[in-house]
């Protein structure tokens, strides 16, 4: 389980920490949800319906773990990127705007939005890094679980998920406790 959660976590971390890719999280944490979906996808693909398939609870756990891994790795990656190369996207947009580059071909409303979004960012500080980690450790597992559940809905084998386990071993109702006389 940890391996597949780590795969999803790496995808999540990339969408948190890497420039350009982090725009994905502007759409209701789509990057984190994608990480959860992919962790379930990798799991079902590798283990296959003939061998074993995840249950709903496994999908929930996969999503949550991918969110935790993604939050930790992504926060570290984001800080490292900002410290090493700075805000490359802001620099790129600043250099491209008004020079007839690819950005000028975009709708004007979108360019205004880009400018507004990029120039409002706060500089990096120790408090911001800590706050970033706390926020992502809360948001990551939350949206990761959502991604895991959506991934399960998309990639699960076509059997009744409420009939017990997908591996074909229905969960038996527990027997009554012995009556002591």
């Amino acid at each position: 389980m940890l391996r597949y959660a780590l795969y999803g976590g790496v995808v999540t971390a990339a969408t948190i920490g890497l420039p350009v890719l982090d725009f994905l999280n502007c759409f209701c944490c789509a990057g984190v949800i994608l990480g959860g979906v992919l962790s379930v996808f990798f799991c079902t693909r590798d283990l296959g319906p003939g061998v074993w398939s995840p249950t709903t609870s496994d999908a929930v756990q996969l999503g949550a773990l991918s969110g935790v891994f993604g939050a930790l790795l992504g926060s570290i990656l984001k800080v490292l990127m900002l410290l090493s190369v700075g805000d490359v996207v802001r620099d790129l947009i600043s250099s491209q705007l008004g020079q007839g580059g690819f950005l000028d071909a975009l709708p004007p409303e979108l360019i205004d939005s880009f400018e507004e979004m990029l120039y409002d960012q706060e500089p990096l500080s120790v408090f911001n890094v800590f706050a970033l980690l706390v926020v992502w450790l809360f948001v990551g597992p939350l949206f990761g679980v959502l991604g895991g559940v959506i991934g399960f809905a998309l990639f699960r084998p076509k059997v009744d998920p409420f009939a017990g386990t997908i591996s074909g071993t229905p969960i038996q109702p527990p027997p009554n406790p012995p009556v002591e006389s």
């Binding site: 249950t55 709903t56 609870s57 999908a59 929930v60 756990q61 679980v145 959502l146 559940v149 959506i150 399960f152 809905a153 998920p161 409420f162 386990t165 969960i171």
Partner: peptide
């Protein structure tokens, strides 16, 4: 729409985890 997908699966997942 997504609420109607997430909630039943979350109910199922919680039940399975609780059993285990």
């Amino acid at each position: 729409i997504i609420a109607w997908c997430v909630i039943p699966l979350a109910v199922d997942g919680a039940g399975q985890m609780a059993r285990l």
